[in-house]
């Protein structure tokens, strides 16, 4: 796939301007990390890239015909289903064996048959992450995907994420510089990405 080129993106919600004339390039085949404080327009940018909302002006090039996956800020799991079913929902042909192996790789053992509503926050986060990683994608967007994970689990999860995203285009949104380092991401900070925020 090609680089994703964002040019002059502007988005307001009512009187509040969230993005103004924002431009950046997300290089193909690598991991880019955007760091910004809360309310800095990161999630708006993600929603624009996902096509869930429309920009007031500006363009995004390079998304045509590519498969996108996402780890949302919220887990967005089907509460009554177990982890295997949640992952299989986006990739019906994935075998139970493969899913169990991936779950084990991120430390999710012994919970395959439990509804996700009964899992802890960290476990649910890993299910949401695996759902995205195991779907078929060319471009992965992750909004604070590692929140709530202890250091040991974080290590496992980042290892699995890097394995699954090798030579693929990833956009990581996080507050944590350490996570960006561990993902070997190209860092883009708020002042570089946003002209102004009123």
């Amino acid at each position: 796939m090609n680089d994703i080129v964002i040019t002059g993106l502007t988005k307001s919600f009512g009187n509040k301007q969230v993005l103004k004339d924002f431009s950046m390039t997300i290089p193909a085949g690598g991991t880019t990390c955007i760091m910004a404080p809360s309310g800095g327009g990161k999630t708006t940018l993600m929603n624009l890239l996902l096509g869930l909302i429309s920009a007031d002006s500006g363009t995004i090039q390079g998304l045509e015909g590519i498969r996108i996956a996402a780890v949302f800020q919220e887990d967005r799991l089907i509460e009554t289903m177990n982890p295997v079913s949640n992952i299989r929902l986006v990739h019906p042909r994935l075998s139970t064996q493969t899913i169990l192996e991936r779950m084990s790789a991120v430390g999710l053992n012994g919970c395959a048959g439990q509804p996700v509503s009964e899992l802890s926050g960290g476990m649910r986060r890993r299910v949401a992450l695996l759902r995205a990683l195991e779907s078929k994608w060319d471009f992965l967007l992750m909004d604070e995907p590692f929140k709530g994970l202890d250091p040991d689990t974080l290590q496992l999860v980042i290892q699995e994420t890097r394995r699954a995203s090798h030579h693929k285009t990833v956009l990581l949104i996080t507050h944590d510089l350490k996570e960006a380092d561990m993902m070997h991401a190209n860092l883009v900070r708020l002042p570089e990405i946003q002209a102004s925020n009123t």
């Binding site: 009554t80 289903m81 177990n82 295997v84 079913s85 299989r88 929902l89 139970t96 064996q97 169990l100 395959a112 048959g113």
Partner: peptide, 13 residues
């Protein structure tokens, strides 16, 4: 509907 794959998964396990 609310337990898609659960039985399948249990069988596998």
């Amino acid at each position: 509907l609310t337990h898609i794959g659960s039985s399948e998964c249990s069988t596998q396990l």
